[in-house]
Design a binder for these strands. Sequence first.
DNA 1: CGCCCTGATGTATGCGCTTACATAATCACC
DNA 2: GGTGATTATGTAAGCGCATACATCAGGGCG
Lengths: 353, 353
Amino acid sequence: MAPHDDLPIVSPRKSRAVDVAREAGVSTATVSRSFNEPDKVLPKVRERVMEAARKVGWLPHAAGSALARQRTLLVGTIIPTLRSGIFANFVAGLQERLGEEGITLLVSVSGNDPSKALAEARVMLSRGAEALSLVGQAYPEELFDLLSARSVPHVITHEFCGDGKHPSVGLDNREAFVTVTQHLLALGHRKFGLIMPDPKNNNRVAERIGGVLETLSDHGIAINAEHQITGEWSPQMGYDAAVGILNRMPPTAIICGNDQIAIGVLAAARARGFHVPGDLSVTGFDDDPVSEHIFPSLTSARTDNTLMGSLAAECLLDQLAGRQAKSQKLTLLFAERQSTSRPAKTDLNLDPQ
Amino acid sequence: MAPHDDLPIVSPRKSRAVDVAREAGVSTATVSRSFNEPDKVLPKVRERVMEAARKVGWLPHAAGSALARQRTLLVGTIIPTLRSGIFANFVAGLQERLGEEGITLLVSVSGNDPSKALAEARVMLSRGAEALSLVGQAYPEELFDLLSARSVPHVITHEFCGDGKHPSVGLDNREAFVTVTQHLLALGHRKFGLIMPDPKNNNRVAERIGGVLETLSDHGIAINAEHQITGEWSPQMGYDAAVGILNRMPPTAIICGNDQIAIGVLAAARARGFHVPGDLSVTGFDDDPVSEHIFPSLTSARTDNTLMGSLAAECLLDQLAGRQAKSQKLTLLFAERQSTSRPAKTDLNLDPQ
DNA sequence: CGCCCTGATGTATGCGCTTACATAATCACC
DNA sequence: GGTGATTATGTAAGCGCATACATCAGGGCG
């Protein structure tokens, strides 16, 4: 036997459509049709093909298919991080909806770094992503140029952009924090602390901070500089920030950028002997599943991130199908709980009402 | 001008390597080399190529590349859900490490459904995944057949399999809950409640339950059937389960499958007037970042899931490079906090020590 | 000055699949 | 039973890229 006989001794080369075709006694065209347009092939033949495919262990290879069909059935999403329920739920919603259409989702994380996001976008386009979902709009212009040059459908999420420059699905972040702030104002608070994530490269957070400050300013209230803290968020960061804030001239309410921070604040209040909500009201955001069950339970607000994911998917699917993209403004779900109440003493509260 | 002139009026077809080649006055081979083996091409020429690529907006198309190169640089992971910090962190770790090697991660969720997992695995192989990361081993034999038939490297995570049937990276789940149980036994508890996720199709949870029951049994202790509850976990489930358990003949300690459940249990205890840890000790698992900051802070244990992700990546990279795969048993990080203490009254505690 | 070697580039084939088109087979109907 | 319509299948040409091999240009050296 010649040594170059094509006996698959060493590495049994992965099978290809032609192997299935041979096995089933048909042409590769029929194999392809059996999988992609089953009703264009005689049931008897189709079954023979399926059986042959099973026998030789064949799975169609997407690369070949993508090339021939000019269609990858790939969609990409770029998110700041997976380490947050917000984005994890969002991705889950996105993936579930896209999966229903046989589309595979490519996920990549940019850590809120615009240039990393641009690089990731390049990778995704190179991989053949047919559409992209982006969190916010804080990206280099070049990214959008890339998309429009190739007319790649995209959607901005976690942010509702009224201007309509891009289709978007998300919350009005400013409005959301206006709501939170007004809740506290209505309870009678006049002296505030604010602990937020870093607004750098994060327009959503910037909007939220803007919403708080503007609303307070409308009521003639300013936040003392040392009562306003931003940074890399975590419960510990909330704790540390709150300790600083409560140290001197403490406010009667602290608005937190999310529940993780707020839970740290609650711990700090406890450690410093502040009673919540008697001495201090605290609000979170995102409404973590545990926030309802901790003590004191946390006043918070959220939007349905899974829904946001599926709406984003819908928006991309619409565009891929040549339909008009719908932007959607999601509603805020506000949950008032034990961590907020009227301030115990009204201090210098001169509000004439 | 003839109407069929190749003027890109309507749809400016995405550019291909040949367009770049023409623009730069070289062949497609040189274009390819400029991108993949830059030092095999004269700097002057390479720059000309890069400039041309920029000009015509060309990105290499992965499908063509994959086909020609017989290499997709794609790796897949199948996880039960993204809606859990455990898996989100794991995926993040996995992706970070693979990304360093220029490998794109394909993520899909199976919801602990073995047949869904099999389907997802098929999709991933079809997409050209060169290796797979799987949570646990509770999959149809067919899935592993698929992998071994094509000799696709894989790794089992979130579970350490001593048997060495598959490379694995994870915790010894039984041992972990033995540790938790022994902690409570050492404190003097003799009457236990157990609230766990559903062990169906989830060997990790089954092992954990086994670890608890076996350890107790070694001490001659059995858990009352109505003090042992499993189900779809959430803080609310923990709350409901605990209300049931605390209703009659309450135990002095409740072991929970994770922190979310435990936080629900804490809420139930509060609602029923049980003081934690005086009247009731509670343990969680996974050590959620908030668990240290809530009141009472929660005794919990965890493993480093991001590390697990990067070790899993390493294991796959080793196999892809033809090196030996290393299984790794991760260490348990146990955190004793306020939610556990000696039981207030020793009840019927007859332990002679 | 010619030879050979090295390094840069080009030519052309094939990766695995889909699909337009060609062909063959079947059927209805007069 | 012949004709045209209809349906089932086959043939073959790419999809965009990488790369083995061929070619060509220099350069070193005798």
